[in-house]
Amino acid sequence: MRRFLSVVAVLVVGWLVVEKVVSLVAPEPTVGHWRSEQGRDAYRAAYDGVMATLPAPSAVHDVAVDHGSVRVYEWRATGPSSGDRLPVVLLPGIRSGAPMWGENLGHWIGDRTVYAMDAIGDSGMSLQSVPLTSFDDQATWVEQALAGLGLDRAHVVGHSFGAATATAHALAHPGRVASLTLLEPVLVLHGLPASTYLWSTLLLVPVPQSWKNRAMAEIGGVTVEEVRERTPMSVMIDEGARHYAAVTLVPRTLTDDEWRSLRMPVRIDIAGDRSLAGGAQAAERARALGIDPVTVRPGTTHSLPMQDAGPLGPELERYWSGHDR
């Protein structure tokens, strides 16, 4: 299991860095799209394969928004106390989509309704028709999707890039957010480590694959053998990276005033090893800003939600229950 999770982290982090560099070189806004029908079909087969391992959703929604349509999976609450519990909305990391939450859903579905989205402009089942011109547009499509689902208020959870998106949404539309949970949020608290940018250059230039594997291993904090291993999730991410021309605008680091303007409860969980959120420095800054709880989770990397799914499940349920009103 550790090997599988580490490979996912390497692929997601590697492509996050690539998208950041490419956005600086080619800043003209465009629309995410499949490079070929064959590539789309290959990705869809891999995506469906991973989704088949998740609990079957109660409903599948394609919600129209200004920038296209958002694919949302719903697991409807069935427990007797579900009427007293606000829904949870999950926003994924880059290239991961709704399938990334497979390790977590079993801990959360049942007594409360859970929604998982594929992001606009990234590989997945969401469709983009209008360019994103700034990172604030991420907040717009999330807000429109929540409104389209009829959710007046929800607990919003994001991982990695999805955590940055969740933060932008909470800043722009605080009334919709009952609580904000940020798992390894990239860039919004602290920049990426300098070593990540140095190793990432090997992902952008024509060098032997063995060099690229070493770079991804260094970025993700794993071995080269773990990078080479193939799993259903890593195949899905790899097919998306190969066949989908993503348009992923880079989040910015928020000011202290912006963080302090967030009036909803905010929880931040940071990896204890090879954090891409800023590690101890990000945790220190968050605590200084008065955010509570801020947890550095030992033995985890950027794939924190999957690696710590067992303890994180009941912890987050208790946190949400404490802020259902």
Rank of each mutant, 00 (worst) to 15 (best):
A147H: 08
V130R: 14
A46T: 10
V114M: 00
R76A: 12
V22L: 15
M117K: 01
T78W: 02
V70F: 02
L105H: 05
H67M: 14
S23T: 12
W101G: 00
S36F: 07
A52F: 08
V130H: 09
V25G: 08
G102V: 02
E143R: 12
G110A: 01
E74G: 05
V60S: 14
P27C: 09
V63G: 03
N104K: 07
V65H: 01
I94Y: 13
R76N: 06
Y47W: 15
H61P: 04
V114Y: 04
D122K: 01
S36C: 12
T53S: 15
V70G: 00
V89Q: 00
D62Y: 15
Q38G: 15
Y43W: 14
D137P: 10
G97R: 09
S58W: 07
S126V: 02
V72Q: 01
A56I: 08
L149S: 02
L86Y: 05
D66V: 13
L149D: 00
D118F: 00
I109M: 04
D66W: 12
R35S: 13
V130T: 14
L54F: 07
D137F: 10
L91N: 02
W34Y: 11
Q128F: 02
G39A: 11
W141A: 05
T78M: 01
D41P: 06
I109L: 06
G102Y: 00
E103W: 12
W75I: 01
A26V: 14
R95M: 14
V25H: 11
G32C: 09
V31H: 08
V21F: 12
V89Y: 04
L90Y: 02
G68F: 05
T53C: 08
A64M: 11
A139R: 03
Y73E: 01
A59H: 13
I94R: 12
V65P: 07
G106V: 08
G148P: 13
V88I: 14
G83Y: 04
Q144A: 09
T133N: 13
D111N: 12
L90I: 05
E143D: 15
M125A: 12
G83H: 02
R112Q: 02
E28K: 13
L86N: 00
T113N: 07
A139G: 11
H67E: 15
A64N: 11
Q128P: 08
A56M: 10
G79A: 11
G106Y: 01
W75V: 01
L105A: 02
L54R: 09
Q144N: 09
D41S: 15
V22W: 13
D122W: 01
L54T: 08
E74P: 05
G32F: 06
D48K: 12
V50C: 10
S69K: 13
I94L: 15
A59L: 10
G124E: 10
H107I: 08
P99V: 10
M100L: 11
A145Q: 09
A98T: 04
H67F: 15
P131C: 08
H33W: 10
A139W: 00
L90V: 06
V21K: 11
V114N: 03
W141V: 05
V60N: 11
G121A: 04
Y115I: 00
A119L: 11
A119P: 07
G110D: 03
S81A: 14
A147D: 09
H33G: 06
G110F: 04
V50K: 05
R76F: 00
A46Q: 12
